[in-house]
């Protein structure tokens, strides 16, 4: 099943009883809480790519054995936009996996705020959880805030997280320019490559990357 639109209500609760993919490029104004429950042997994929200001909480519970979650959030923020993303990945059953990736490019005086928690409870043996956030800051006034947390209550798990904040790598820029491309074109390429993960989702890719700002 594929879902491309979310309802314009404060809370959205969804139970994954079959493999489900969300491809979202616009967050409804009213919506602030998304709660997803994944049941046995099912996989939920949640991809969001947006350039708008939003404050959103995603709460995913891997409720039954062999349930999986894959999440990708891409934000391209300019002017005064501000994105606040809170995520909670809860592993409450054995042999569950989750992988969440957050990527933001921040221009002007925009701001990206990310709070993520992975919780693995005592009974969720052999859980495999990952959470990574990357931000690229392209102006001195741009801000990125990341707080990726882990709470691990048993030892039969794989759990990792990472966060990185950087600006355009001048060496990369130099390399591309030395191949004869202009600066703007080179920057554009680097930004496109930063969002390489979204290429797997052609439904969102064209719209999001098509007119990337440089």
């Amino acid at each position: 099943m594929i879902i491309t639109q979310l309802p314009n209500t404060p809370n959205y609760i969804f139970t994954c009883t079959q493999d489900t993919s969300f491809f979202i490029h616009e967050v409804p104004k009213e919506l602030s809480n998304i709660i997803i429950l994944v049941t046995e042997n099912n996989t939920c994929t949640f991809v969001m790519a947006t350039k708008q200001s939003t404050t959103i909480t995603l709460n995913v519970t891997l409720a039954e054995r062999n349930s999986h979650f894959k999440g990708l959030f891409c934000f391209m923020l300019s002017d005064n936009t501000q994105v606040t993303l809170n995520t909670q990945q809860t592993h409450s059953a054995p042999e569950t996996t989750s992988n969440l990736l957050v990527k933001s490019i921040v221009y002007d005086s925009a701001k990206s705020i990310y709070n993520g928690i992975i919780t693995i409870i005592e009974d969720a043996l052999q859980a495999d959880a990952a959470q990574n956030s990357y931000a690229l800051l392209l102006s001195p006034d741009a801000q990125a805030y990341a707080n990726p947390s882990l709470e691990v209550l048993n030892h039969e798990v794989q759990c990792s997280h990472g966060a990185a904040v950087a600006s355009l790598d001048l060496e990369h820029l130099f390399y591309i320019q030395s191949r004869g491309l202009g600066k703007e074109r080179a920057e554009h390429l680097i930004i496109q490559s930063f969002f390489v993960d979204i290429v797997d989702y052609p439904q969102l890719c064209a719209d999001f990357l098509g007119n990337a700002q440089t």
Partner: peptide, 25 residues
Amino acid sequence: RTDTYPTVDVRETNVSIGHEASVSK
């Protein structure tokens, strides 16, 4: 039990900031 609560707050460009964590037995 183990927890990791790192907070990264960056308000400047041209920086290189990395955080990584792992949990294992």
